[in-house]
Design a binder for these strands. Structure first.
Lengths: 203, 203
DNA sequence: TCGAAGTTCGAAGGATTGTTCGGTTTTCGC
DNA sequence: GCGAAAACCGAACAATCCTTCGAACTTCGA
């Protein structure tokens, strides 16, 4: 079952998708602030300017928004990660590049990320959540493989590689909870700091 | 407004508190699994065995449970942190001790911790949430002061002390999302790994 | 054993929520 | 400018959900 009424005329398709993305962005901001279950559809109609009926022109339901937020967040990140690991650069350089892109992405899409990390239970009770899960798993595997290659060629040393991976995930996932736009540290500085801790601070 | 009917007879007080704590524990497990707003009171009556009316004998309302979970989690942790920092031991040793106690606490109370970290929005919309906030702030200040003392006496080195603090918070807060009872790593091993990363892995 | 305090029940109420649907207005292609 | 597709409205619906309340049952102290 696709969207309630996706336009068939190609010329209108772009406008439709843009408007839908606006709705998803508004939902991300609201969900990040009040929580998924804590946000009512009437709050969403208020911030989008659309009435109830108009809103459902762009989404299948409230669940749909949650999945859309996660996919909008994970898809470009996963693609960038695959680009970086395909360069053939040394593992340490790849890691620095990947963490930099990752942190920048997380900071730029704070609201999406907050929903992704804070609404795990709400996401997991959706029927379509398995796709989100597979995307997250794929990203974590890219990271783990990268650390494994660095460990194998001796350019990285870990007391416990899996723990270092989990620690890195923890640091980055926590970032949107404290980072502010125009904050003291840039995304690149934050990423550098994280890499230093994971790699043992021997630059 | 205290609880609906706290028993005045001292002999019954203990039984009452114990039963209440059971209810809070059951709520913590449910909230951790399904989310606060995603859990209905009827699910709570099902797992506690109490009917609706009996349940409200021990709690003021659903909000009360959320606050109780946070306080049961933070109070003993904060007390332990104060004990450790009052010993006068060298900062590095105090940090190792504190992180070990912290991780052990987080692992032992996974469900409470998951509610505390995942239901931030639900907590912040409660009227009584300021007490929880002050306890969290107090704990973070203890940690920050400890790092500051270590930096001051030269026993610790940070590229950016605040970033190291936030990274540590991220690692530990993320732990309950992946840790399993009887998992591969003990709480002490996890804590050691975290300390090594924050302190620069020069043991 | 008696009376009171404590505990539990479960149906009912009041409020909110996500979603639908018929109709109206706007926009686009020709 | 005409007709159809698209966009939008908003009242109404069905389903939950949290909480209350009066009554019944159990336990304790004397």
């Amino acid at each position: 079952m696709p969207l309630p009424s996706p336009p068939t005329r190609p010329a209108l398709r772009a406008r439709y998708e843009a408007r839908r993305s606006e709705v998803v962005a508004a939902a991300a901001e609201l969900f990040a602030e009040r929580g998924y279950d804590g946000t009512s559809m009437s709050e969403l109609t208020a911030t989008t300017g659309l009435a109830a009926g108009g809103l459902y022109h762009y989404i299948e339901g409230k669940d749909d928004l949650l999945i859309a937020i996660c996919e909008e967040l994970l898809e470009p990140l996963l693609e960038r990660a695959r680009e970086i690991t395909a360069t053939g650069a040394p593992p340490v350089e790849q890691l620095r590049e990947l963490v930099a892109a990752w942190v920048a992405h997380v900071v730029a899409h704070r609201h999406h990320m907050l929903v992704f990390t804070q609404e795990r239970q709400a996401i997991e009770r959706q029927p379509r959540w398995r796709h989100v899960r597979s995307q997250r798993k794929a990203f974590e595997k890219i990271l783990d493989d990268l650390l494994a290659r660095g460990e194998a060629d001796g350019s990285m040393t870990f007391a416990d590689r899996r723990l270092s991976l989990l620690a890195l995930l923890g640091m980055v996932n926590y970032t949107p909870q404290w980072v502010r736009p125009n904050g003291r540290l840039s995304a690149a500085e934050i990423a550098d700091g994280y890499c230093a801790m994971v790699l043992g601070s021997r630059s």
